[in-house]
Write a protein that binds this DNA or RNA. Structure first.
Length: 297
DNA sequence: AAGTGAACCTGAAGGC
DNA sequence: TGCCTTCAGGTTCACT
């Protein structure tokens, strides 16, 4: 699931429960996710206080008071569920309708308290492509997870000039270039398709075609940068997209999926006003690309 | 070096 | 009803 907006949504759900709170107990229900848990994972966390819950690209990084950082990636199907444990809601009528059914995939349970409240944070991940690791904070920036990450598509730093720098001499299709985490970090298959539609650019066009000195190339690069920032910002605002089981940490659904213009809309009409085309599905680098062949050039 | 496709794992959906 | 195939939000590794 989780592309940058979903991870940011998870971060915003975790922060109120975890920042300033201390791990009282950590329970792992299997020896590994995508990778084995680091040695003594639970013991190293217990009694640590969380200073800050941060996000970089699709990674969550929780800074702890012992100078370690809990790094977590949600893979394809990871999600968190936060429950406040209080006297009136001992058994927490969960908003997760199918929690029981998926409880076998509750691989990690964090218990925390902040002197006032107690929280249970459950990590669920059916496909187990996610992972967790503990890294010293002074090694974080140079760690393999983070060292090669590209620019963050949030804020205003990603602009047309930046895209032209990144895509210079790139022969790969534009779709593949935008998906490359070493160039721009955080976009996944859905939001790449959406951003390309919004910019009116074909996913099949070579990335370097936005880098010529022509006026039209510069305009295209500007439009693409604007579209990427806008799609990501709107998706974060909407609480991410909920496909299948994906929910926000309080169990409610994100709703950005109701605004998809191309993703998973094969055969349907293009949503652009003056466009009479419909949405095609092709496979690029082994993954589905959805786009309008009429208005994306 | 850069680009492509398979692999990792489980569940849902569709065809027969 | 069941069995089979295909596909899914990500990343990494092996290969051209």
């Amino acid at each position: 699931m989780p592309e940058l907006p979903e991870v940011e949504t998870a971060r915003r759900g975790l922060a109120p429960a975890m920042e300033g709170a201390t791990f009282t107990r950590v329970k792992i229900n299997r020896p590994n996710l995508r990778f084995p848990f680091p040695d003594n994972f639970a013991v190293r966390l217990e009694n640590c206080q969380v200073r800050e819950v941060t996000r970089r690209a699709k990674y969550l990084a929780l800074y702890l008071d012992n100078e370690e950082v809990l790094v977590m990636h949600l893979g394809m199907s990871g999600s968190f569920h936060v429950e406040k444990l209080d006297t009136e809601n001992i058994d927490g009528e969960s908003l997760h309708h199918d929690r029981d059914r998926f409880a076998i995939h509750d691989h990690v349970i964090f218990y925390l308290e902040n002197g006032k409240n107690q929280f249970q944070v459950t990590y669920n991940d059916p496909r187990r492509f996610g992972f967790m690791d503990l890294i010293n904070s002074d090694q974080l920036a140079n760690h393999k997870y983070f060292a090669n990450l590209g620019i963050e598509p949030t804020g205003n730093s990603l602009d047309g000039e930046c895209i032209r720098d990144l895509f210079t001499n790139r022969k790969a299709p534009l779709k593949a270039a935008i998906l490359d985490q070493k160039l721009i970090a955080g976009l996944g298959n859905i939001y790449v398709c959406e951003a390309l539609w919004q910019a009116g650019l074909s996913p099949k066009r070579q990335a370097k075609t936005l880098c010529t000195s022509s006026r039209v190339a510069k305009i295209r690069a500007d439009k693409l940068a604007d579209a990427i920032r806008d799609v990501i910002a709107r998706a974060i605002e909407a609480g991410g997209s909920s496909l299948n089981d994906h929910r926000q940490t309080d169990g409610t659904l994100g709703y950005f999926q109701h605004r998809f213009n191309v993703y998973d809309r094969e055969g349907e009409n293009c949503n652009r006003k003056e466009c009479a085309g419909n949405i095609n599905r092709i496979v690029q680098s082994g993954r589905s690309t959805y786009y309008c062949g009429s208005c994306q050039k």
